[in-house]
Design a protein around this nucleic acid. Structure first.
Lengths: 178, 178
DNA sequence: GTCTATATAGGGATAGAC
DNA sequence: GTCTATCCCTATATAGAC
């Protein structure tokens, strides 16, 4: 429901109705709406933390990046709709301000995706991958595309974008600057 | 403000405060909040319509697709923050249900981006481009990247994604089915 | 064209019975 | 653990004076 209507657009009444209980019943389990948002987002955040842990354990910076990309695609597909919330919903940014661990996890993941010695060109590439993958994974038209197929295609795309740094550098840097 | 806080998260009070007038003054110019949203989105929608018109005038289907992609990148960069609203804000989907011309324009643009004889593979590619471009264009980290640079890099990326249909077909179709 | 004041509805959250 | 009932606040929107 958060993915479909947005966090703000999803009222406790709607949640209660969907569960066929009253608002008060919902409030027995969660004391605030924020708690519900965090509970919903938690599995994704845990997976992000897992990917970061795995990537960080690697000695080679470039391997770290590859693992991060692969891991990101994997968790985006696994959580489908959820990715868009964390990525796009303004309520999530608000939540990130008061919950540092959330903010840190996302920043860390982005840093890994940027790779070592990242310049503006890499930032754009990373942003393209994150936005593209999030977009695909939550596209209503692609709801019935099997996870496994989506995963393979996205991984291929992402790696494809990664493996063309020349393209980026050539465009970003003035000719002659190497 | 819609881009930063979401449509639902932006109250008329916030808008009035920003304009340094009262809520009632805002209501003199716009009778409903929806009207404001539509007024804000209109320049982008007009540009979408323009791109569709230009593309539709071309005889060759593949040229239509190229123009659509190029036009999409162009308008995404020109409107920056706005793209994300139209693309991601749930309030926009709600608005699209009651305003057919909006829905139609978006569907038409997506169809052009898909290209002729589009299969699932093309749909994923289109989705990746739309999501990726929208993501880049609204990335807070990239706010100070000049429009012109962003435009060139994104166009390069998008065309790059378009020109690798073999990659997609190879993954999607079982080997041997050509 | 902008203001003050207010109507009306809905949303988050709590109290207390069962 | 769930309910009814209610509080408080905020949001959209309107009325009517200036």
């Amino acid at each position: 429901m958060f993915a479909e209507y947005g966090v703000k657009g999803t009222t406790l009444q709607m949640i209660a109705d969907r569960l066929e209980v009253t608002k008060a019943a919902v409030y027995y389990h969660f004391h605030t709406k924020d708690e519900i948002v965090r509970a919903v987002a938690q599995p994704l955040l845990e997976d992000i933390a897992r990917v970061i842990r795995i990537a960080d354990a690697l000695p080679d910076p470039n391997s770290r990046r590859e693992v991060a990309v692969s891991g990101f695609v994997e968790l985006a597909v696994r959580h489908r709709g959820l990715s868009a919330i964390v990525q796009n919903d303004p309520a999530m940014s608000t939540l990130a301000k008061t919950h540092v661990e959330l903010e840190n996890a996302v920043v860390k993941l982005i840093t890994l995706l940027d790779g070592p010695d990242a310049d503006v060109a890499h930032h754009i590439g990373t942003s393209m991958i994150i936005g593209g993958v999030s977009g695909v994974v939550t596209d209503a038209r692609l709801l019935d595309v099997p996870d496994e197929l989506l995963h393979r295609v996205l991984l291929d795309y992402a790696q494809h974008l990664l493996n063309t740094p020349n393209l980026l550098s050539a465009v970003v840097k003035p000719s002659g600057s190497v």
